[in-house]
Design a protein around this nucleic acid. Sequence first.
DNA 1: CTAAATAGACAGGCGAGTTGACTACATGGT
DNA 2: ACCATGTAGTCAACTCGCCTGTCTATTTAG
Lengths: 147, 147
Amino acid sequence: MPGDEWSTATAVLRLGSKLVDGIQQGVAAAGFPDVRPVHGFAFVRLSEAPATTAQLAQHLGITKQATSEIAQYLVDRGYLTRVPDPTDRRARLLVLTDRGRSCTRAAQAAASRTVHSWEQDLTDGQKAALRDGLVAAAGSGRLRPAW
Amino acid sequence: MPGDEWSTATAVLRLGSKLVDGIQQGVAAAGFPDVRPVHGFAFVRLSEAPATTAQLAQHLGITKQATSEIAQYLVDRGYLTRVPDPTDRRARLLVLTDRGRSCTRAAQAAASRTVHSWEQDLTDGQKAALRDGLVAAAGSGRLRPAW
DNA sequence: CTAAATAGACAGGCGAGTTGACTACATGGT
DNA sequence: ACCATGTAGTCAACTCGCCTGTCTATTTAG
């Protein structure tokens, strides 16, 4: 049935938009009003393991110059620190501070609330099918800003 | 199970990213290399019904000045025309040209292909559950750029 | 020990969006 | 009929996020 894929596609975009808005709003309400969506993607990467500026740039899909500016912004506001890389004296690793980890937790909590709000009118079976389907369809590639 | 919502959330973002990339690529391959994602959102709105610049601005969530520039860009490239609003001599309605409609169809076809590519490894039951769940969760609000 | 590659930062530019100011037309109250 | 206020659309100047180009310090390969 043609048109069905289109409503599926627009649904994904609507959910993505709601999710980003929900995270942004929840994070701001939790006392972190100065972080933007792109910072969230950086936090997700750095919460897995520290990274150099160049590695983070690769992950985000932007230049290392832009990444350098973003990192400085987050260091200035206490979300990140730079620590010397023990294996390379040119490099400095970007590491989340306590504040950075708190912010990441707030973002995940807001995302969780938003996902639940989607599921308001769904049966338990629909919820499980939706989550499984989404995860199966999306795979596990890197997570970066949409465009 | 905590963490489940988070993987659901990131799955939505990944799918959204893939969808936008797929549409962009498909539309460019179909001979429309000069349209950006925001233009697609404008096309979707205008394919429902003509709109004034101010109405389109409201829909896209940006200022009417920015919308005016986008509209001029699309008029210059033959995707839109401006026609006088019969009910208000200040206003001019933005209308899709044949080229604009062709581009919209190409975008929908590309979106369709991308949705199918997600469903590659899903059973028919999973596909139906995923589509139904997405559409039910997303509702039918306005469609606008994610951020 | 030198040559090429890489990490990171500085400078300047571009593009998409913003706020502010303005003209033309519309609309409601007197 | 008139004037005050509001709305459609555009021009100008600015901001901001990201880009390209260039540079130094350090690493790594030959």
